[in-house]
Design a protein around this nucleic acid. Sequence first.
RNA 1: CGGGGUGUGGUGUAACGGCUAACAUUCCUGUUUUGGGAACAGGCGACUCCGGGUUCGAAUCCCGGCACCCCGACCA
Length: 422
Amino acid sequence: MPISMKQSQLFTKTKKESPSDEVSLNAELLIKAGYIEKEMSGVYSYLPLGLRVLNKIENIIRQEMNSIGGQEVLMSSLQESSTWEPTNQWSDDQVDVWFKTKLKNNTELGLAVTHEAAMTKMLKDFVQSYRDLPIYVYQFQTKFRNEVRAKSGIMRTREFVMKDLYSFSKDEAEHTEFYEKAKEAYKNIFKRVGIGHITYLTFASGGMFSKFSHEFQTITGAGEDVIYIDENKGIAINKEVYTDEVINDLELSKDELVEKRAVEVGNIFTLATRFSDALNLKYKTENGDDKSVFMGSYGIGPGRLMGTIVEVLSDGKGIIWPESIAPFKVHLLVLGEDDNTHKEANDIYNILIENNIEVLFDDRHDVNAGEKFADADLIGIPYRVVVSKRSLSDGGYEIKKRIEEGGRIVNKEDLINEFKNV
RNA sequence: CGGGGUGUGGUGUAACGGCUAACAUUCCUGUUUUGGGAACAGGCGACUCCGGGUUCGAAUCCCGGCACCCCGACCA
């Protein structure tokens, strides 16, 4: 990712008016600020600024997945029917979100909805012995889901990138150990992208092979789910499993639980041997017996995460990115047409780059101060630095945080130190 | 998939069944201006979503598609 960019070179523009075909806050702000472009309902493209944010989110996820032993791959989007038939998931009755297509010779193909089966199939090539396990494999890969109703901007789309990790363990005990690590890694991710304080580990329906799955739910009115939170314990129950029995199981009390709307930003669940049995992924134990691999699945949608963050972190003027995922750290603005002021701004720009500080430089001419400020607020980069005749005569450069009202003047050395220290 | 709503220059909106489809913004030219979307002047840009119908006359009414938004259902 380039460390810097001049706004005069950025091909996207901000919009003054909100799009008429979007109601959701995330889409409205992201489109107005030039982060994303809508291709059609539920299908969006990421523009230069948006891609930077997406990449930063992905990199945080990547670091956390690597730290628990994940190995990154990239699997195909086109999948053959035989991958899905063993688990009886090829039929449209079983999976109703398929996009299917055909080869020239009429062979039916599916556009990947998910990769449990494909990954299991792939690992058959590499897993024979207990010595080969455990294995943790993940990817950032495009999923296609033919949703009957796309909604909420980039929160629920028909095509989206998903980080999906699959764990392959020898037995349930080994699986559980990793599962707990994954939980912590997920918590770290949400903390690092700035929504940790409003994101809850939530007990949800576990499917056939375990009592619960775990969702990570972020509190926002824009969410689709209803959850019941115990704020002291920091956990929640999804409405779909909200029964007296479950409340007792989890040793929670109905009186302590608060109902909130939330969006599912991550999901981890135990697959057990459903896929390994169906696709015959077995290994030899120390005793020479054949045993099915014990699996788990762990998903996060970086795009949905980005949308959620925008839903949660904005004000009337625009987005307020957490520093960890902002497209740039500093938004440098030069005001006025004065040559000397521009020269000073340019110097600062180069110094920031030399010091390895990411900077978007609004070097545009003939753009009013008010417009530059409005754009900066809308785009939402954490630090704004203004170079103008006024700031220079006041002794330097004005630095202001996006979340704060007033700025202050600093000199060149202090400016650099300011950013080196944060 | 059920229900509701909406389709008009790039964007946001207006227009009684009746004049050359209006306004703002964006964009282009020029002059001025430069700390919160700045001023003036001029200009480009629309088969009014598509197809049919009613009518002397349709952006406007009717029928059929398609697209988009919202509520619900669904979410392997």
